[in-house]
Design a protein around this nucleic acid. Structure first.
Lengths: 338, 338
DNA sequence: AACGGTTGCGGGAACGGTTGCAAAAAATAT
DNA sequence: ATATTTTTTGCAACCGTTCCCGCAACCGTT
């Protein structure tokens, strides 16, 4: 495994490595056009590829951004990464992605690895609203810019961008009620995810607004996965309580619930309406298609990248800011018309 | 942004950087236990994180493996990455993932980036069976070990691991026939993906075996995405030809077809059986659940990593080998019992 | 006391680029 | 022609780490 270096090129052409370096960097101020052309051509011919490690060492930055996400089963995070990569690449940054698997220990390891790689900044969606807060704070005080997206994090002085979960819930549940539903089950997300609480608040807010009674029995822990959602649904159905709609914290859980319901021959949406927050392309792939509040993924990625880049450009007197985006209600076949 | 270096530690303790380096590397042969303890403790206290760029430069390897995948909408590739990351991390390797978006130009850029980062090896699923073959060959002759997984690549002397597509198709289509289906539509994959041809061969083989006529009109280009699958299905239905089953190249395309069929009130599987190759968790999320040949993702990742690691350990007199795994037919609700 | 062997540590040269500064070469002005 | 400026080039230091080599201190033997 022998890579060609600028010294190899310099030697082959009888010039100094400085000149080669400048030529390859396109420094038109300091190198004669024909020399430049010659060097670039030779580099191409010899198959030269710059050694990033050497560059990173010399310049004191890596031109890479770390992205930490909690899971890879939903396509939301992958879509986010795609958009973010597009934005960052345009600004000359590479990305390195790390998955915490919804585990705070793995999350710490991810962060550790990113620090070792000397990433210039971190885009992060936490797996726990508070558990690693002091670590984030520590990293940021060490001068590593961070922006948190999608999942809210508490007690950290940092830029964040997420959707207005409470409002999103309000929109969605209101649609449910206006379409005639009265007994709405809420598949609650895990307590350690901040957004779960907000979505529950939104749900309760609408009930109050419409003077409907709030019954805690209709709020069941639906987890994150399809399995958990299915189990929660099954348990609820067995409890014998009447219901005419399910509003879920997340897509996968609702899909699990949907399977259970369909297996029991509930008709959707005639017998039960189904909807959730943070839907992805999956919602359109199932039958009936699922009504959901869609995350503005592209906008979220753009905003997160912008915030991060701004913070990296002017690290001094930078003020953390929280951007709240609004989700878009998309009504599909799993809910009745209002 | 100031990171602490081994020099900082050495200075603080009045020892040489060599000793610090050795202590941190756990070189018990050459450093006294108390010194070691002292150095490690100080390093921890000062928040030392090794600079990977410096290490990569000095040692002539990066301890990272590049993984190139064609898309991120299916969870298959993400699952593969998860398994591969697990294996590689155990061997002390980081991973850097790049997405080609089913585009040969982007694929070249991905490879270029990985070379710049001096990855020690590449795990790759191509977006075109042949287009970039000479580039792969070039990279390998430059001493970069590569292993190709899932998607077959032609005319390249390299290790490959994929499922036996023809046999997988045979298994699946046979089940269809044994359950009573006679007019089976095949949603063909894109021509530039080698596996598509193999799966078609499998389909034809079974027809021959059962002495059923082969009608080219029943083989339609179904593309990769749900949209393409839906369009293909719609076109076929409009053609007026009778059919009682759809066997698809890939999950997403079949899901697209399924939507169309369900919208038209075809009953599944009573009117039309549905199945595909390379199913993921998605198959169990939809209703009715989808019969599929499941890829042995973990096994494929393990094999690919093993092959790559072996090749990296003994680059000389290494012989490329192709490992063919067999898929597992999982019958679910979208097909009738045999 | 002199000897070889081990142990623990420091010095310094790499690794492959970038970049400030000075010097050489070329272009322009006097 | 020489003086001056401008363009183009080379030298050398540096980034943080590893690792080869050498040195000293200490050990037990003779």
């Amino acid at each position: 495994m022998k890579y060609v270096t600028i010294m190899d090129i310099a030697h082959a052409l009888g010039v100094s490595k400085s000149t080669v370096s400048r030529a390859l960097a396109g420094d038109v101020q300091n190198v004669k056009p024909e020399t430049m052309e010659l060097i670039c051509e030779t580099a191409r011919r010899m198959g030269y590829r710059r050694n990033e490690a050497a560059v990173n060492l010399r310049r004191q930055h890596s031109k890479t951004i770390g992205i930490v996400i909690p899971e890879v089963v939903t396509s939301f995070f992958m879509n986010f990464i795609q958009f973010a990569q597009h934005d960052l690449r345009q600004k000359g940054y590479r990305t390195i992605i790390a998955v915490s698997n919804e585990d705070i220990t793995q999350e710490r390891e991810c962060l550790d690895m990113l620090v070792q790689c000397r990433v210039d900044g971190i885009l992060m969606s936490v797996c726990h609203r508070a558990a690693n807060a002091s670590l984030y704070q520590d990293l940021m005080s060490r001068g590593i810019p961070m922006v948190f997206f999608d999942r809210r994090v508490d007690g950290v002085e940092a830029s964040q961008v997420h959707i207005d979960d409470a409002s999103a819930s309000v929109y969605m549940v209101e649609k449910l009620i206006r379409s005639g539903c009265r007994k709405i089950v809420h598949l609650l997300g895990p307590e350690h995810i901040g957004n779960a609480t907000d979505r529950l608040h939104g749900y309760r807010e609408v009930l109050e607004k419409f003077k409907l009674p709030y019954n805690p029995q209709y709020v069941v822990s639906g987890g994150l996965s399809a399995e958990e959602g299915a189990q929660a649904m099954e348990r609820f159905v067995r409890s014998g309580l009447e219901f005419d709609a399910v509003f879920g914290f997340t897509e996968t859980a609702v899909l699990g619930a949907k399977s259970v319901l369909q297996k029991m021959h509930y008709r959707i949406p005639e017998d039960v309406s189904l909807c959730c927050i943070s839907g992805t392309a999956l919602c359109t792939l199932v039958h009936p298609t699922l009504s959901a509040v869609e995350q503005p993924t592209a906008e979220m990625a753009d905003t997160a990248c912008r915030l991060l880049l701004e913070q990296m450009e002017r690290p001094v007197h930078f003020k953390p800011q929280t951007v709240v985006l609004s989700g878009e209600v998309v009504l599909r076949e799993s809910t009745k018309a209002v």
